[in-house]
Design a protein around this nucleic acid. Structure first.
Lengths: 232, 232
DNA sequence: CGGAGACGATTTGTATACAGTACACGGAAT
DNA sequence: ATTCCGTGTACTGTATACAAATCGTCTCCG
């Protein structure tokens, strides 16, 4: 036998709560405003405060929650935060894809990527924004799996999720989705050709474009809202 | 009054334990091998298991501990890990310093940096490796404080500490310390001139050099040891 | 003599109880 | 009427008790 995958143990309540809360945060179901109270969450999830506390601690340590006074709150992303996150992503993700392109051994590994692209195209044809976003994140997960440097993966994951729910603001738009598909097609081609420089450039352009569109969407929303940031 | 610093509340036991353990890990006082047992740690620190557990969870979530079976252990850094970490640092730290150089408003902010350099030189003259390392990390903390992008800072901090205690292997060497001083002098000059490109290049060369020397030291140690990695 | 199974001990996972603190609400005094 | 102070409530921080699971050891059987 060569390498056995460590079989997943029946994950603990702490882990379950962590995953649930994380998913709620990503999807925007828990928004900033109400302070996250341990007893509340515990009752809603049907567990005691202990695993809830553990999950909150972990989330805070990853920056998905901020401590305010004694309790945790969902931090409101400012325009500055978004700028910072994209600056960081521009440092990491193009380089990560360069490494992927240079490490492609068999084209087989790119199959999943192509499949996600197809799903995105289908969803776009059906004008299904939700399915499009799902396929979009699957695409992302697919190439992230190919990054050989695991520390790099962790660093990317540290912040990519933070703007995830914001993308729903922009991917509702038909034109935006077309631009995204085009960019990711270019990226997939570069990977298929094992062209590291082109893959990096494609990702760079994709991120710049995403940031530009997101910036415009946030500005438009701020004009209609209270103007203290993208998230209220 | 303009802006009052939020006075630090008497930090909780959970935080205290977290800081203590983190410091022990950094200094190499807790090494991999013995599994970290909650009751043990709790008794040694004079607290109950609850805050210990909280601290362990946080450390694990930051990658400073790994879960093995049910308990946490100090992960052994492999040669591959070191490679990955330096690859990541090369992506982030030169760019961070480019931003610092481009954001220098007043030379006053560089005073702390110069002071640390002086301390390093003094320590080197006295052949005090310990003081040299301390000054070295103060230097690092000084420029990190000037990085405008806080998300970038967090990403850098994610892994910089992981190889920290390994540096003691190399900074014992006189010649190494000279090289380090030279590199950081070059960096300070670039910052003083607000030359972003030169600052980035200086940091890049510094990291490459540090990685090269560390690699050699690890190889030498592996030859004498059991060869399963830098940390036993 | 070796292996397998069972039992016991040790350790983690979870719940709950208790203590301390901060915040809010109300009353009284200026 | 407003402000300050006091009391009460609600929440977090910590400890401890309890449950479940895993690991080691010992014994018994093949």
């Amino acid at each position: 036998m060569t390498s056995l995958k460590t079989l997943e143990r029946p994950l603990s309540l702490g882990d379950s709560v962590y995953r649930s809360l994380r998913e709620y945060l990503r999807s925007g179901l828990i928004v900033s405003g109400q302070p996250l109270q341990e007893v509340d969450l515990a009752q809603q999830l049907g567990v005691s405060r202990t695993p809830v506390r553990e999950a909150l601690t972990r989330l805070a340590s990853e920056g998905l929650l901020a401590s305010q006074g004694r309790s945790f709150v969902v931090p409101a992303l400012t325009g500055r935060d978004v700028e910072d996150i994209y600056e960081l992503r521009l440092m990491l993700e193009p380089e990560a894809l360069r490494r992927v392109a240079e490490n492609i051994k068999e084209q087989k590994k790119l199959l999943a990527l192509r499949r996600c692209l197809t799903e995105m195209r289908d969803a776009h044809a059906l004008d299904d924004a939700q399915a499009f976003m799902t396929a979009n994140y699957d695409y992302r997960a697919a190439w992230m799996k190919l990054v050989p440097n695991r520390k790099l993966v962790r660093a990317i994951e540290l912040y990519a999720d933070h703007v995830r729910y914001l993308r729903s603001l922009t991917l509702d738009n038909r034109k935006t989705r077309e631009v995204v598909i085009h960019g990711l097609q270019r990226l997939a081609s570069a990977l298929a050709q094992a062209n590291g420089a082109e893959a990096a450039a494609a990702m760079r352009d994709h991120l710049l474009e995403a940031k530009r569109i997101l910036g415009k969407a946030l500005q438009a929303r701020a004009k209609g809202g209270d103007g203290d940031g993208p998230q209220g």
